[in-house]
């Protein structure tokens, strides 16, 4: 019987090597697989490249991993937030590398990796500092910039429900980068709050088909933490 369900965060994170590229889902706190990311601290991998929309909030999840000194480079769209002080300090001290990517380019570069696309031309960023040195092309009278796929060794994502084949359903706007990251990584680990029997998730409602998910681990439900803004 096939089961992608593992019984601990430690088992879910087996094989994350030093120097790995790890995608982490979430937009601020929504969709951040906090328990998996914090599990990486105990797992011990270092010199990581992290691909995520933000660069951590307060001192939980990604910020905790940064604080533990495990991250060499962050590829993200929006590092600077009201509560990103862990990243801010590392960046100012020159202890972390930043590749800043417009958010839609980030999502599409991840999607391209997951879809077997070798890159794409986009209008976004043309003529700006973030497109410096990149190939450009005129298409239908407008200027486009070439963007490359972003691949990863692991994706750590958070979903609401899953089954032993790896089918996933998300919750509200916590979906964000989860579906595209699941496609782009060699190994995708999803935390879920509910494990369902096969067939209990309506096939019409599956958002991420199980082919994109290699491991699931159940994490008890906790309210998502407010993050990323000044109340």
């Amino acid at each position: 019987m096939i089961s992608k369900i593992v019984d601990s965060v430690a088992a879910a994170l087996a094989g994350v090597d030093d120097g790995a590229t790890v995608m982490i889902g979430g937009f601020g706190g929504a969709g951040m697989p906090t328990e998996l990311v914090e599990g990486l601290i105990a797992q011990g991998a270092k010199g990581l490249t992290i691909v995520s929309n933000n660069a951590g909030n307060a001192e939980f999840g990604l910020a905790a991993l940064l604080k533990a000194g495990r991250v060499r480079k962050v590829i993200c769209s929006f590092p600077r937030q009201a509560d990103s002080y862990v990243f801010d300090a590392l960046y100012r001290e020159g202890k972390i590398e930043l590749e800043l990517v417009p958010q839609g380019n980030l999502a599409e570069r991840i999607r391209a990796a997951g879809a077997g696309i070798g890159g794409f031309f986009t209008k976004v960023g043309f003529g700006t500092e973030l497109a410096k040195g990149k190939e450009t092309r005129e298409i239908n009278g407008e200027m486009y910039v070439f963007e490359s796929p972003i691949y990863a060794d692991f994706a750590l994502i958070k979903a609401e429900q899953g089954d032993r084949w790896g089918n996933l359903v998300y919750r509200k706007a916590a979906r964000n980068f989860g579906p595209v990251m699941a496609m782009a990584a060699k190994t995708t680990v999803a935390s879920v709050h509910e494990l369902r029997e096969l067939g209990a998730i309506d096939p019409e409602h599956v958002i991420t088909p199980g082919i994109f998910v290699q491991r699931l681990v159940k994490i008890p439900r906790a309210a998502t933490i407010a993050a990323g803004f000044k109340a």
């Binding site: 937009f27 929504a30 839609g104 999502a107 991840i110 509200k172 998502t224 407010a226 993050a227």
Partner: peptide
């Protein structure tokens, strides 16, 4: 509900008829 936030990560609501989608679709 901090799974339901806006671009500034502040809590919002969804109207009847509203929908959720992933980031690549959003930017499409």
């Amino acid at each position: 509900d901090f799974d339901l936030v806006n671009a500034g990560k502040q809590p919002v609501t969804l109207l009847a008829g509203g929908s959720f989608f992933h980031s690549a679709d959003s930017f499409a």
